[in-house]
Amino acid sequence: METLPADSLTQRLRDARRSRQSEKILQDKETERKVEERQEEARTSSVPGEEFFAEAGNLFSFVGRFFSRVWRRPYEVRELLTQMDEVGTKSLMLTGVVGFSIGIVLAMQSRGTLARFGAESFLPSMLALSVIKEIGPVLTSLVLAGRLGAGMGAELGSMKVTEQIDALEVAALKPFHYLVVTRVLACVIMFPIMTMLTDFLALAGGYLEAWLSDGMNVRVFIATAFDSLRFADVIVDTMKTSIFGFIVGIVSCYLGYNVRGGTREVGRAAMQSVVVSSLLILISDVVIVRLSIMLFGDISDAA
């Protein structure tokens, strides 16, 4: 094969090979440089947990920004109504179905347990207690966190990466008011309302089950159900979802508003919004319940 003359093709291939080699050298240099940069970055942020605390700090300053702006003009009333519609009407189906089916299932499950202690007559009051005090608020908030957290995180995130937020900012249109304040307020207002609806539907589901299995009278059901509930409990447990709403709103907006990069980061922001707000909801629920027991005493004080 070596006998072939150094024709033009050979020459071309040889040239190509040579230029590829020099390209490779350049690439190697580039990678080296990148590795060095990476190491540099790693050195500057080598304290363990630093990133977490930096993130938490930023989140708190975002919260601070919210509270310093929420009182100030412009009040985006129309956008607030749009967002409330988004949180409320558009999520109604989901929370409704969740509430109703949980009510039925809860009634079916508890019936057996109560029957063993011969306490079947406590079914309505047990249902009311568990739904209104815990399952209703937390489940509604978690479901809404999943739906809204992902939605808001992705929406704001993509507005950020396509520079729509910057465009608002440059046009002096105060994107923080328009986008963040409205969404957070909508969550704060709508979460308790959605919770009440879920509670109602869950109890309706529970009653349906009770009526189907032993034809319970509505009035008896209602009377026993609310027997063991105190007004303060109902208020506290429903209103605590405002705090959950605040968490979902502010966390999702924070993560969306601070996306940098491309579509992958938008997806990540959406996912993190759901995860972080769900975790924070559960943690703050523990704190709130603890506090409310300290303040109002627990349920055994009732009746």
Binding site: T162, E163, Q164, D166, A167, V170, A171
Partner: peptide, 15 residues
Amino acid sequence: RTRLGYLFQGGALFD
């Protein structure tokens, strides 16, 4: 800013 305009790289239209 009311006297400044900025055309963003991708147009930045509200979608």
